[in-house]
Design a binder for these strands. Structure first.
Lengths: 221, 221
DNA sequence: GCAAAAGTGTTGTTGGTACACCCATGA
DNA sequence: TCATGGGTGTACCAACAACACTTTTGC
């Protein structure tokens, strides 16, 4: 314990998206040994004068071109042998991004790809456990905190929102109970405009009012 | 980012105890500059080949002499300037120990002292935020997971248990509702023996049956 | 006029909360 | 016998779950 400490510190990002009505993860293809051909979370080392949170944001920015993305620290993985190439302790962060807004060129450059959450390929090291832990955390939190909106555009419809929740929780929800709960939260603002792309009748758009929510903090879905 | 990474990795332990019917924290007195005279969590650097979890256990063992103590990782604190003496990233762990079982000599040697959770002295660096975060986590979890028993002896009475919960949650609980919930969980085993030290009537001892609980996992208090 | 998705209320059940008195015992 | 903490049951209320039909519109 007295010798000089030789531990590298990294961050890994669990990047969620909601595409084709399914919860998906953005993974990068590993083009080099060891574990070449497997997939992995996008990660990077922490800079000497960089906040841990900033490192996670930088890693995400480099891949997606997106800034000011909502991220949460999940937990830190510190088993001595977790990375066979050396001693690396990694803190995981989960992020939510919109496929429509990110920079597809950058993603191509990194050989990244979206995978539905229940059809993940083989991942390197302990990344699978990292993902599972982040998904569990998301499921625990999504009903009590308005975090899922980061996976939808500003304007969204209630059928969209419900499908998102069903995708995250991986269970069907009752339409009327779901909509009643939404109606009880007055920071869901119903707009005049309708989304006509999914049905003939059209579904009203809603938006989520952060400022109004901040006064109540009673989110519940 | 290309230069050699120079970040030290540490663990800090938030050590809970339940003494004199109050939730307390074990803190160590800081006898050197900077921040001399303030109090701090007990912490230490992670060994090069030591699991992060093991480092937390070692730190706790060195202070208390206790092994196989229940610990949970809380979160990792990685702000670049959190420790003015250098770049240190620290992962916090929370632990629960019994005053009656730990090694008082060791604790004296480290100039450690118990403080009720709502009468904490000034702490160094970001340790106060660490404590707050661990307390919030404990309060969130204590009603759904049987973790509080680590703060009681094997045999405990229901009045004891209720006072523990009231201390943790910092709110009074209804005695009858509390006891009904206990009665619904059949892994609370009522013993023949009574604790006669707190009242004339005496209160029955109970024990918590881990194996039975493992089959149900429906803890709720 | 029909197919396809959007939208709408009621009822039963369950879990939570509030609340006051009797019991056992040692001094 | 009395003071002290231990132990017990019921009634109300709120939140949740289950469930089926009508509306709108483009084709």
């Amino acid at each position: 314990m007295e010798q000089k400490q030789q531990i590298k510190l990294a961050v890994d990002c669990i990047i969620f998206g909601f595409n084709n009505n399914r919860l998906e993860l953005l993974l990068v293809h590993r083009g080099f040994e060891p574990e070449k051909g497997k997939w992995s979370l996008i990660g990077g080392y922490v800079g000497n004068e960089e906040d841990l949170d900033d490192a996670a944001n930088r890693v995400l920015y480099n891949l997606s071109g997106l800034e000011n993305i909502y991220m949460e620290q999940v937990r830190t993985w510190g088993e001595a042998n977790r990375d066979p190439s050396g001693r690396v302790v990694s803190t995981t962060y989960s992020a939510m991004i919109l496929k429509s807004e990110y920079n597809a060129e950058l993603v191509n450059k990194y050989d990244a790809q979206w995978f539905p959450i229940d059809e993940l390929p083989e991942l390197i090291f302990d990344h699978r456990a990292m993902v599972d832990s982040a998904v569990r955390r998301l499921r625990r939190r999504v009903r009590n905190y308005p975090i899922a909106f980061n996976l939808l555009p500003e304007k969204f419809t209630l059928p969209q929102l419900q499908m998102l929740y069903e995708g995250i929780l991986s269970e069907p929800l009752d339409k009327r109970n779901f909509r009643r709960k939404v109606a009880q939260m007055n920071y869901f603002i119903k707009l005049e405009e309708k989304d006509m792309s999914e049905s003939r009748k059209g579904a009203y758009y809603y938006r989520f009012d952060e400022a109004l929510y901040a006064k109540e903090l009673n989110f519940n879905l």
